[in-house]
Design a protein around this nucleic acid. Sequence first.
DNA 1: TATGGTTTGTAGCGATACTACATGGAGGGA
DNA 2: TCCCTCCATGTAGTATCGCTACAAACCATA
Lengths: 311, 311
Amino acid sequence: MALEVPTAAPGAEDSTDTLLERITRQLPHLRRSEQRVAAIVLDNPVGAVHFTMAGLAEAAEVSEPTVMRFCASVGCEGFQDFKIQLAQTLALGLPVTHSSISAEDSAGDLSEKIFDHTISSLDRARRTLDADAVEAAITAVLGATDILFVGFGASGIIAQDAQQKFPLFGVPCQAPEDFHQQFIAATMSGPRSVTVAISNTGHTEQTLIVAEAAKKAGATVISLTGRTSPLSELADIALVARTFEDTDVYTPSTSRLAGLVVVDVLATGVALRRSPEHTAAIRRMKSELASMRQGVAVAAEPENLAEEPES
Amino acid sequence: MALEVPTAAPGAEDSTDTLLERITRQLPHLRRSEQRVAAIVLDNPVGAVHFTMAGLAEAAEVSEPTVMRFCASVGCEGFQDFKIQLAQTLALGLPVTHSSISAEDSAGDLSEKIFDHTISSLDRARRTLDADAVEAAITAVLGATDILFVGFGASGIIAQDAQQKFPLFGVPCQAPEDFHQQFIAATMSGPRSVTVAISNTGHTEQTLIVAEAAKKAGATVISLTGRTSPLSELADIALVARTFEDTDVYTPSTSRLAGLVVVDVLATGVALRRSPEHTAAIRRMKSELASMRQGVAVAAEPENLAEEPES
DNA sequence: TATGGTTTGTAGCGATACTACATGGAGGGA
DNA sequence: TCCCTCCATGTAGTATCGCTACAAACCATA
């Protein structure tokens, strides 16, 4: 194989991956001494940020040029670049693939780990989300007369949240929780209806049934999944937000979060492209909601009036 | 004041802030030439990462030591450290305070900005969340016989999500959407009940009423807010997850996301401290849910059986 | 064991970050 | 207004760092 640049190995420069992922993936393809460097870095990534090249070389018991070659092998321009990329990876926090959750963790450790994992996961979703698909989804929604959001479990939460954003979407939105209701709504879709089907696995039987019903009724189906799957295949527009999988029982699901952000993107994109009058209406609603919330108007329970922004 | 280190100015080394925030805050207190450096960095933070000291000095039309002094003034050890910290800040993405959303943005720009903003916001929440409060909340829930989650609008979404995590909490959880139902549930609380009251502003009238009712009934009240507020004052345990505020109409609310992650932390913390049998039960549930979801059992609609993990 | 190539280390160079010191200029008091 | 003081800024110099060209060592194969 190549002489000084075995880096040409599978996808070393793929910037959709974080540096630590790349190191881990490249590990077996590295030379022995470079593996020693990798081991030091992976063992204590946080400490490695403040290493100087000489320091890292000494710690790994190799020469400085070896460290250089290691940097090149994992897709960095040089040692400087390596340090910056490492720092950036670390800023997101380590996904639990690198630091797992244990029963001995203090509350502080725990929250740090879970936040880190969530942020890394969102970072991954950000890197892998297809902008063209988002564009297509926005366009589809702009032409819609009504939107149906469906999902079960955690994906149902995303559907509920999306439904709350109807002021931004500007057209009637529904997100029934009951499977039968979902099916009925899907069947009643027209050609200018949009159905957003949400399922992280993309395999959920019921969601597939509803999506198929909507499609048969002529609606445009947008899928929101965590990977390519039967649901994304079935959909007219497939939004895929990849996150880190749950590695053990205690790793909280991060796909919900990514899904929520994708819905945010969708809703914002749609609202931005609507008329200035629409913007004005949203602004008015937001300010009135703020004053209402503090009890200026307490005549009736107003929770159904406008639930969009947070309380 | 100090001669070479005017850095002693208010909170320059406060690591709960990101570097760009610190620069912005320190800006008026900096010397004129240092302000020029700051201007260059703030103007194009992304490009600044690859600057060399000489390059940055030239760009700002100052000498190298001035750049050094600037680094010190914003709480960095040196130029190297400055670059690393800047890189880390950038890795999170810029909150919309630095790059705002506009109607001309492409779908790609838009999703990048919103993801960036969300991630920065979660980073802020991560930095400001009080570990002791989390610990106290975990302990409180461990001693509870039942949990009530309340919130309206986006905070209601968090409550719904939390309710779905009842397998982790290990005790009955409810999260009624209706204000009256919430009030009734709160009033029926016992001394070993826990009520988690969620409101980003911490001012929402109805949430306050419910929290107060729960407290009067003898329950332990945990608040989950975005700032110290009437609700957090009222609560026995106050969880505060600070995020970046919505700067304009189109900035999606990120407080929901932070709230969800805090609930994740809480649920995970509680589950970790429960018995091994409990863990085993969760593991069993998760695997059976996975097979059920793919249609192995389709006799009845099973959406109420176990909605915890994502679908 | 000899010989090809690959892996690793040595030596040296230019550039970089950092420090000690000197100069320039603004502001205040007589 | 002039001088003096103090603070801001730049100049000169140095140790160190990152990087490259080259040589030695290693391993495998014939």
